[in-house]
Design a protein around this nucleic acid. Sequence first.
DNA 1: TTAATATATGAACAGATATTCATACGAGGA
DNA 2: TCCTCGTATGAATATCTGTTCATATATTAA
Lengths: 121, 121
Amino acid sequence: MASRNKKDICEILCINQKKVNAVRKVMQTDGVIKKLAETFKVLGDPTRTQILYALAQDELCVCDLACLLKKTQSAVSHQLRVLRNLDLVKYRKDGKIAYYSLNDIHIRNLFAEGLEHVKNP
Amino acid sequence: MASRNKKDICEILCINQKKVNAVRKVMQTDGVIKKLAETFKVLGDPTRTQILYALAQDELCVCDLACLLKKTQSAVSHQLRVLRNLDLVKYRKDGKIAYYSLNDIHIRNLFAEGLEHVKNP
DNA sequence: TTAATATATGAACAGATATTCATACGAGGA
DNA sequence: TCCTCGTATGAATATCTGTTCATATATTAA
């Protein structure tokens, strides 16, 4: 263990340097990877998954969603903010009521692919 | 606030009961939603995203991945276990070396859709 | 104005999680 | 056998995150 540095991050020797170099060339940039992971992460919470799936069917207000998902209004509202911040949903105000709807054309495709994965083992 | 129960989860009144009922009919079961969210969640960590993206290009061993991602061998190995447990990757042993590769046909499509979302605002 | 209702939001808390460190295991090589 | 190297893994830790509670804001009705 003596030869290894405290942090063997940079010291790690590749077994197949050529392959690694080739793969490195086609890797996405850190920025893209970060955004990609961010996108998947948002979809990776059951509450948000359900909200988005519901909104993929119809425009709904906050209390409708809360009723549908059997969650508190607060919990739903907090998650809607997350989705709003990422521009995945939009909303229109009708008096006191806020009607939310999908604002991303890729969400449905992602769900379709995801369901394919879940249902076809 | 007097009329509301402590937990207003079940008490919440839907504004558009009909819509909610219609959407409820086409909602996925809790089990499917849970698995769906689980799948997205696994893809929702930058380290795992990179590992999967790299393995989508070529078969690589643990230290190659560590070298490529500039992470410790331990960190990579822990994440590989997560991916293994979900059958997203498989590996073959060649002596001491463990070569990992993709084991899920949907991953590439999910990445494609995800990248579409990231790159087309 | 006052009351009620729909929504938003900050603070606090509990539970999850990614990384690090240390170490164990297993396969060759000396 | 002993040593080295590639990998796996448990424990500890710091950070992140989803929910709850309390409250604020805003709109409508009385």
